[in-house]
Computed example of a mutant assay.
Amino acid sequence: MYKELSSGVKISITRSISTSFESYLASIGWDEEKFSMEDFVASWQKYFTENAAWFDKVPQEILIDPQFHEEVAKKMDEVIEKVLNEKPTKKQIESIEKMQQQLGTNYSFDCKAEAAYVEGLLKEKLK
């Protein structure tokens, strides 16, 4: 079912998962102990029903089909894995190290998305 959707809709679904995942993690301060898959899924559902263009393009009979939900859950796992495994850029690392020296902080980050979060925090502290 998922594979039968247009490439634009599939890209939009992927983007909505990625965006809402990063937003959810930012809302919990990237604290692994606060992570709840149920809370993330609820956050993602709220995001796609209110903001995602793809939601209105998928027929209702597909949206309610259990097979579609299984396929989207698999896609969600893939997207989450990709987000968590994408390495920070050299530019991010250098920027964060410079700001941390200025501020005397020691934030850690493991992936590009978390680095973006940390970079944003540090920029706010420097204001």
Rank of each mutant, 00 (worst) to 15 (best):
residue 97 E to D: 15
residue 98 K to V: 05
residue 98 K to R: 14
residue 98 K to I: 03
residue 98 K to A: 09
residue 98 K to T: 13
residue 98 K to Y: 06
residue 99 M to W: 06
residue 99 M to V: 02
residue 99 M to D: 07
residue 99 M to L: 13
residue 99 M to N: 07
residue 100 Q to R: 06
residue 100 Q to M: 06
residue 100 Q to F: 00
residue 101 Q to L: 09
residue 101 Q to A: 12
residue 101 Q to G: 09
residue 102 Q to E: 12
residue 102 Q to A: 03
residue 102 Q to Y: 04
residue 102 Q to D: 08
residue 103 L to E: 05
residue 103 L to N: 11
residue 103 L to S: 02
residue 103 L to R: 10
residue 103 L to M: 07
residue 104 G to Y: 09
residue 104 G to D: 06
residue 104 G to M: 04
residue 104 G to L: 07
residue 104 G to V: 05
residue 104 G to C: 08
residue 105 T to L: 11
residue 105 T to D: 12
residue 105 T to F: 10
residue 106 N to K: 14
residue 107 Y to S: 02
residue 107 Y to M: 03
residue 107 Y to F: 14
residue 107 Y to T: 09
residue 108 S to W: 09
residue 108 S to E: 14
residue 108 S to Q: 15
residue 108 S to M: 12
residue 108 S to R: 15
residue 108 S to V: 12
residue 108 S to Y: 14
residue 109 F to Q: 13
residue 109 F to A: 05
residue 109 F to R: 05
residue 109 F to L: 13
residue 109 F to V: 07
residue 110 D to M: 12
residue 110 D to S: 15
residue 110 D to Q: 13
residue 110 D to A: 13
residue 110 D to N: 14
residue 110 D to V: 12
residue 111 C to H: 02
residue 111 C to W: 02
residue 111 C to V: 07
residue 111 C to K: 05
residue 111 C to Q: 07
residue 112 K to C: 08
residue 112 K to I: 06
residue 113 A to G: 01
residue 113 A to R: 04
residue 113 A to Y: 08
residue 113 A to L: 01
residue 114 E to G: 05
residue 114 E to T: 02
residue 114 E to M: 10
residue 114 E to N: 02
residue 114 E to C: 02
residue 114 E to K: 10
residue 115 A to L: 04
residue 115 A to K: 02
residue 115 A to S: 06
residue 115 A to T: 00
residue 115 A to D: 06
residue 116 A to E: 13
residue 116 A to F: 04
residue 116 A to S: 14
residue 116 A to P: 00
residue 116 A to V: 01
residue 116 A to G: 13
residue 117 Y to F: 15
residue 117 Y to C: 04
residue 117 Y to P: 04
residue 117 Y to I: 02
residue 117 Y to K: 07
residue 117 Y to V: 02
residue 118 V to K: 02
residue 118 V to D: 07
residue 118 V to M: 09
residue 119 E to Y: 08
residue 119 E to T: 00
residue 119 E to W: 03
residue 120 G to N: 10
residue 120 G to R: 11
residue 120 G to I: 02
residue 120 G to T: 12
residue 121 L to E: 11
residue 121 L to F: 05
residue 121 L to A: 01
residue 121 L to W: 02
residue 121 L to H: 00
residue 121 L to C: 13
residue 121 L to D: 00
residue 122 L to W: 05
residue 122 L to V: 04
residue 122 L to M: 11
residue 123 K to S: 11
residue 123 K to L: 13
residue 123 K to Y: 11
residue 123 K to P: 04
residue 123 K to Q: 15
residue 123 K to G: 14
residue 124 E to P: 01
residue 124 E to G: 09
residue 125 K to P: 00
residue 125 K to E: 11
residue 125 K to H: 03
residue 125 K to W: 03
residue 125 K to V: 04
residue 125 K to R: 14
residue 126 L to F: 09
residue 127 K to L: 15
residue 127 K to H: 11
residue 127 K to M: 10
residue 127 K to Q: 15
residue 127 K to Y: 12
